[in-house]
Structure formats: C-alpha cells, structure tokens
Design a protein around this nucleic acid. Structure first.
Lengths: 193, 193
DNA sequence: TCTCAAACATGACTTAGATCATAAATTAGT
DNA sequence: ACTAATTTATGATCTAAGTCATGTTTGAGA
C-alpha cells in the first residue's frame, strides 16, 4: 500500500515519540496503523511482568489489522521503538481499501500468511526445542534480513524477549553456539558470515 | 466458501483414510485443501520426535494456504484425524477464487486473522506462562466451542501436544486446576459448566 | 578522553517440569 | 459381558533453565 495515497485521502498523520504507547491490551480496535516513518514493537506482557516480542514493524509496514478485522480487543502493547509517524486508518476506510483495491487485498493476504508462517515456526520452537535450538532459529531468521559482514543490532535482552528465555540463558547459549561455530560473534555482536 | 461450488467447477475430490498423511514438511505446496467431510490435524514434529498440534481443521474449513501463498515449503504434517474427503484446489484456481470472489477474499482475510490471533495468544503462553496457566488457557479456549454440560473430547496427550507440555504434567496440572475449582472434571473428562 | 549507563559475563543455588517406571481406570471391539 | 488397548494416575528421580548476586566490558555523550 502506498502511504502517500493515504495522506492524499486526507487521513490523519499521528506522531509518537520513542517509547510512547500506541495502543494497549484490552482496548477495542478502531484503526489500522500504517507506518510512514519509524519503528514499532508489539509486545505482550505476562502477569509476572515478563515481556514477549510478538513482532517488530518498520517504515512502510502496517499493524493492528487482525484485532480490527475480527473485532476483538487487542492482546498486545504496541510501542514506538523510535520516534515514529503513523497513519491511523479507521475501520470503514480500511474495509473500503480491501474492497476497492484488489492489489491491496492480495498484499494483505500475503502479509498475514507470512506472519502466520513465522508464528507457526516460533510456536514449534517454543513448544518443543530447547534454549540453543530456539536461539539459533531466531538468530538465523534475523540474519536473513541483513548483508554478509553486517552484525545484528539486537541485544541479548531482545533475543530473550523473542524466545521466551532469560538474558542470562541467552548470553550463555550464544556463547555455546559461537564455540560450536554455529554463529560468529565480534565484541558480543552477532555477525553474518 | 461453498464446497458445492467447487465440486460443480469440476475440481477433484480426494479421499484420505484415518491417519493417512495429506502432506508433509518440506513438500512444495501445490494445492489449498477444502474439507468436504472429516477432520484433519496439522502437526510439527521436532528432531527428538515431539509432536506439536498447530491446528485442527473440520468440515467446511480449508488449510494449506499460507505456504502456497508465500510459496514456501510446508512446515507441518497434515494428517486425517478421521476418514476425510477433501477438494484440492490448485494454485491458479485458488488465485482466481481470491480475485473473482470478493466475499471469499474477505472471508480468507478474516480466517487468517483469527488464526494469527490464536497463534499470538499461544506464543505468549508458551513464552511466558507456566504449566497451569498454559493449560487453563487452551482448556478455556476449547470450551468456547462446546455447550454447557458437554465434555471436551480431547485426551491429555492432545492437550500436551497443544501446549508443549508432557502428558504427566498435563495430568497433574488438570488435577490441580480441578482442585482449585478452575475447571470441572468427570471421569477424567473436562466438562463445561 | 572521561564518565556513566547499558549491555554482557559468570558463578552458585533453586525449581518447574521432564523422564522413567509401574499401576489403575476407561473405552472399544468382539 | 469380557478382554485388549487406550488413557489416566502417581511416585521417585533428574536436569535445563531460572534466579540472584556480583563483576566486567562497551559505547554514547559531555
């Protein structure tokens, strides 16, 4: 979906400063959010305060549709990772978009499928595999996005919040993976080889 | 989607006997499967042989689209839970369906959203919560589908395979939940109150 | 280049849930 | 109604990962 098109339609652009909350669990969904600029993380928080990163959304991507489409309160927080500008598209406009822009509708179906695929993979990992395997799987997944020689701009804490492990475990496990030669690290950072 | 319509179009009806495999991990997707009659489970299996139930699909539902839509090999097995009849719709026909049947396209978007919602919920559970909480969450989820007084036709093993726990743990935990009055059991079966 | 906060590291101890073994209760098929 | 096969049950260990405590390294901003 072309963001400019949405702006042309007169839809409102909202700004969120780093770490501000866009929506939180329990709220009734009213908008789908298209990111014009910035980055947003979607996290669920357990009763004991443990965070789990459900996803990260970047410039050009959108989030919040599933809850809106099936009309159920949000499960997660979405929080700006950086100062961000988003366009909030209300329900009616979003349904219009699906109806009248067949390309968008197809694109949405693909996006949802991709996310579903990722979640299925992670579910399998969390349900069945132990720390090392779990870690290696997301590391490889994240490495897919970057170029050889680059390093992952992700902290151990973030890896922990994506795998359901604790920082200490992630630290110990990455060390083991590096020793086994399954990943390469430089000054703590994980680099693509 | 109306199954009869698909049959009228001359699409082939395939039969699978209980426990036969419809597709397995690694295969390149060629069809989307509409269930005319029966029931199918989608399971991933870890290296150590542990099964995880990704989903269960019943008469009138369809499965296998995400992999086909994003053109990635299947992650899971799908296996007939009962003798089943399914219509295999090939890629071209499926894309036709999305393009030419706006109702179907909307329905598909909603279906994908619902599954995404369920997976997000389960991910949060597996990543952060302990056995009892995890179990109670799927039990309540499953109870949503049945009437008061009815009991869940799910074995402890199946609950284990949905939560990533082991049978013994599920057995011990259900007992605890029943003692706490959070669920009700009769002759081992969990009943809706 | 110095300082402070964030991120990484490591050891010691605890624990939830896995594993293994064995038995009782249900259910299904004849 | 009777056997065989599932499914549920329970006790005794074992272990991966969590927890807690206390460093050390790295990097961002003055």
């Amino acid at each position: 979906m072309n963001i400019q098109k949405l702006i042309d339609k007169g839809l409102k652009l909202k700004s969120y400063s780093k770490d501000s909350v866009i929506y939180e669990p329990g709220m009734q969904p009213r908008y789908v959010y298209f990111i014009k600029l910035g980055e947003v993380r979607m996290v669920t928080v357990s009763d004991e305060g443990k965070e789990f990163i459900q996803g990260v959304f970047k410039t050009g991507q959108y989030f919040g549709e599933p809850a809106l489409l099936i009309d159920r309160p949000y499960l997660a927080f979405t929080i700006a990772n950086k100062d961000s500008q988003v366009i909030a598209v209300n329900k009616e406009d979003f349904f219009e978009l699906i109806k009248n822009e067949p390309d968008f509708s197809m694109e949405l179906i693909r996006t949802l499928s991709t996310r579903l695929f990722y979640k299925s993979m992670m579910l399998e990992e969390l349900a069945s595999e132990k720390a090392d395997h779990r870690l290696l799987t997301i590391i490889n997944y994240l490495l897919g996005d970057i170029a050889v020689g680059e390093n992952l701009k992700v902290t151990r804490q973030e890896l922990a919040d994506m795998t359901g492990l604790r920082v200490e475990t992630v630290i110990r496990s990455t060390k083991i993976l590096a020793e086994k030669g399954l990943i390469k690290t430089m000054k703590g950072k994980i680099v693509k080889v």
